[in-house]
Design a protein around this nucleic acid. Structure first.
Lengths: 143, 143
DNA sequence: GTCGGTGCAAATCCTTTGCACCCTC
DNA sequence: GAGGGTGCAAAGGATTTGCACCGAC
């Protein structure tokens, strides 16, 4: 744990260890700062909310986590190192599906190149309705 | 002007007319609420900031404008009706380029379909460095 | 011992809301 | 004249910052 932090060029502190441990332990995509804060405190690991904000900012800079922001929702973080992926989001129930399409990635590259741009990263989110919600919507309105 | 509002099912008021006129007049992509507020007041058209927020929310619901949110920046609006497009954003100078790639759109559709999802809309933003900024970066570090 | 990290509280920023008044239909 | 629209000021929520203290190196 400490080694990970050190290797990332981060100072080792109790809070950072706990936080990182927590991220690995819950291994969930898309945790909000509030989630992390609540989660840690629920486990009796007391930590300040602003500290979570600061640590996550550091972690992001160090490349340990990735920060995402969907439409007008709060920022979420996830451990980096998982393969790159994009998101499908259900507008009704909020379900979140991850997918990856190499062909899309390639086209992005080409599009950027066409305008003389290099690609650092991208964000691609598709909003729609999932199978279950579509069915529910239909049965409600379709009578 | 009034006709447009009426057709969109919106009540016609002086503020809404002025605001819509302004949007058409500056015809710029990606205006923040603050931009609009400042712009209108600079033209002597007094309007409340919260009114701009409320009107833009109505305009969005009515489909007159599209709301976008880039990374952790403030929300921006643009008149809808322009062809669908995605964005290339320079991380250095903030330059914004629009592009469209039908093949990408198609792949998005397919990806959604694979998971049983319908597509309502999507947001695709590519972050990188534009030609000019790349050159500047290289000349700075490359010595 | 120094310097960065942490906690608390207060501040900030964007956005929304409550309420009295005004205007459109 | 009724009901939604507007302005002001105040509330709200997420995130950041100031400052004194603490801990890591």
């Amino acid at each position: 744990m400490q080694a990970v932090l050190k290797d990332s060029g981060l100072k080792v502190t109790t809070q950072r260890c706990k936080l990182l441990e927590f991220l690995i332990q819950v291994d969930e995509q898309h945790l909000t700062v509030e989630n992390i804060y609540q989660g840690l405190n629920a486990q009796g690991k007391s930590i300040g909310l602003n500290t979570v904000y600061r640590i996550m900012a550091h972690f992001e800079q160090a490349g340990l986590v990735v920060r995402r922001q969907f439409e007008s929702e709060n920022a979420v973080y996830e451990l980096s190192g998982k393969p790159r992926h994009d998101h499908l989001i259900c507008l009704t129930c909020g379900k979140l599906i991850e997918f990856a399409d190499p062909l899309i990635d390639l086209r992005l590259w080409l599009a950027a190149e066409r305008y003389g741009m290099s690609v650092d990263h991208h964000s691609l989110n598709i909003y729609g309705h999932c199978f279950d919600c579509k069915k529910k919507l239909e049965s409600k309105s379709g009578r």
